[in-house]
Nucleic acid binder design. Structure first.
Length: 303
DNA sequence: ATGGTAGCGCTGCTA
């Protein structure tokens, strides 16, 4: 049933295989109860998207995948309309002979957009880039240029718009655990940061920077070498909002808890609450119950 | 000491 909510929670999460992460996803949806959840690296075909499982939780899914690599989705309980995939280009199909998954990012499943409630959302999975100045790095910059062109042609800075996803990019030096260790690599290079800053110049706000509501600095930690326990991470998963969204943002949180436990993704979810002061997820069950109660109180008659 | 894990899919690559 469609209803008007008193506030809205939008989250983004690179799940690194939706198939493997399905149980963890269910756990986190119950923990956070997002209205809209942007997913990356589902690694599924559209046919394999877990529609029934999510429907049981009260959510629809719009999925844009290619199997094996990449794959993005929008999960929503606030409606999903006006779906656009791959910047409106041809359907993503792995290029012939592409055994890498990121040789031709513009032909890959890295972008899906839709309208959910009164907000347009975009789920993004930027190419990794591998090595600065490699062909993969050039392709990453070309993908960012395509994103920029799509924004200019299809969106307005004065509409409620949220871009979220794994941007494979740390905007500032304190978004990485050791700027010296990362120097010279991808994710921190000036040309990548220029691309990010052009998104901001167009009219997007890094909601984490605007609302430092919670002290967690990073959203990704390498599986290897104990990087997570040592907190050797990066903030590469972002929620960017236009001014109308930024004005409504009350709380931003990176949920480190989701990186723990059995079968974690190497990324943690990032969430933003619009129109109401948020509560820390670690307020636990009582906090979650209170949020649910708040939501019930916010329900109105079907429109 | 310059490694390590995880996912995909079945060999070695990607991240």
């Amino acid at each position: 049933m469609r209803y008007t909510v008193a506030w809205m929670r939008i989250a983004t999460w690179n799940v690194n295989s939706l198939k493997v992460r399905l149980d963890k996803l269910g756990w986190w949806i119950d923990r956070a109860r997002p209205d809209v959840l942007l997913l990356q690296e589902t690694k599924l075909t559209d046919a394999a998207a877990p529609r029934e499982e999510l429907a049981r939780l009260g959510y629809e899914i719009a999925h844009h995948g290619q199997g094996q690599w990449n794959g993005v989705a929008i999960v929503s309980r606030a409606g999903i309309t006006d779906v656009v995939t791959n910047f409106g280009l041809a359907r993503a199909v792995p290029a012939a002979g592409d055994e890498s998954g990121d040789a031709e990012p513009l032909a890959e499943a890295r972008m899906i957009a839709a309208r959910c409630g009164d907000v347009r959302v975009v789920s993004l999975y930027a190419p990794n880039g591998r090595v600065v100045d490699s062909p993969f790095y050039q392709a990453k910059l070309a993908w960012y240029a395509r994103l920029e062109a799509w924004l200019a042609a299809s969106c307005r800075p004065d509409e409620p718009l949220v871009l979220g996803g794994d941007m494979n990019l740390a905007p500032m030096d304190d978004d990485v655990w050791d700027a010296k260790a990362c120097h010279g690599g991808t994710h921190v290079s000036p040309r990548e940061r220029d691309a990010f800053n052009r998104l901001l110049a167009w009219g997007l706000v890094d909601l984490y920077r605007a609302k430092v509501s919670q002290p967690e600095r990073f959203s990704w930690w390498d599986y290897r070498a104990g990087h997570f326990p040592k907190n050797f991470g990066m903030r590469i998963d972002h929620l960017l909002g236009t001014a109308p969204v930024a004005a409504r943002a009350r709380w931003v949180e990176i949920d480190r808890e989701a990186r723990k436990g059995k079968l974690p993704s190497d990324h943690a979810p990032v969430l933003v609450d619009l129109d109401e002061p948020g509560h820390p997820l670690d307020a636990g069950w009582e906090g979650a119950a209170a949020r649910r109660k708040d939501r019930e109180a916010g329900k109105k008659k079907p429109a």
